[in-house]
Amino acid sequence: MSLNLGILLALVCAIATQLGFLYKHKGANEAPTVDIRHPFRTAKQLYACKWFAIGMAIAAGAWIFHVAALKFAPLSVVQAVLSTGVVILAVMAERIFGFKVGLRQWVGVAMTALGLVLLVITLPATHGAHSAYSLAGMIAFEGAMLAIGAVLIGGKRFGVPDHHHGIMLGAAAGVLFGVSDIAIKALTGLSGIGAIAGSPWLAVTIMASVIAFYASARGMQQGEAVPVIAATSTAANVSCILGGIIVFGDPMPSDTVGICVQAFAFVLVVVAAILTPPPVRAAAAASHA
């Protein structure tokens, strides 16, 4: 019963998350350029945009459903449901918000969704909420993900072309949201407000979420809705799946077929991320030149 409830909560979260992202994208593009040197002024300007504020309100509701889902179901199961978000995103973007979703983007979304689904269904079944974790694994994983997020945010410093920066910021936000989700999963295993308030993982959750907020908003200003949001969702999903294995000990496939399918799934996700967004953004840039 609790597992089914966790799945239902995760489904509601998946829908609300993508809807919130689309509203935030609309609002972010009406706001002044995000300037991390002035974080409070930037946040005020973003929230002053009606659509961004609506998106954040929806995202807050989605976050509550996500935390609840993690309380009742294993991380890998929750991510399996959330992985449907990239398909939900493309449908809502085109049918509700009027974004143009081209064939190349639909192919990228389909490849991403297939890769994520293959990735999660090949994970062996786990029972219970599965909140126990390895402290060493937690520290190593969260530290590595924070470093990856920092590299993605600083992409321009490494000579990455401007038309790639939006997608990199989106991916950075996704990685950092993954860091936050892993920390939240650890917190769900604690009992009592005092234990949660005194846990270092609460600080990690807040720090990663704040940085992800600014990275996501800036990425939305620099890239198209579907590629940037899909990059965020995919990076968050992959980060959480890896975190489930490394930190919480979610089992991996023990047979050759399962391992090969997972490897193919990762290739699908990576190829979709590399090939799909840049041509779309490059074409958009050319049309504005």
Rank of each mutant, 00 (worst) to 15 (best):
G170T: 03
V120A: 15
L190R: 10
V81N: 06
A113H: 06
A136P: 02
G128K: 03
V91Q: 02
S76T: 12
M138V: 03
L176E: 04
V151H: 01
K185E: 01
V179Q: 00
L176G: 08
V175H: 03
S199Y: 00
G166L: 03
K156R: 13
G154I: 01
V77S: 04
L82F: 04
F141D: 06
V151M: 13
G143E: 07
A125V: 12
A150V: 10
V160R: 07
G115F: 02
F97W: 08
V87Q: 07
G102Q: 03
H127P: 03
I148Q: 10
K100R: 12
A80Y: 11
F99A: 01
V77G: 01
I182H: 09
Q79G: 04
P161H: 10
L190A: 06
G159E: 06
G115E: 07
I196P: 00
A73I: 11
F158E: 10
A173Q: 06
L89V: 05
G189V: 07
A144V: 13
S191Q: 08
H130W: 07
T112G: 15
I148P: 00
L152C: 12
V107H: 05
V78L: 01
G149Y: 01
T188V: 14
V160D: 00
L116G: 15
V175Q: 04
I139G: 11
V117F: 15
P124Q: 09
I121P: 10
I121R: 13
T84P: 04
G149R: 00
A132T: 09
V87I: 15
T188Y: 02
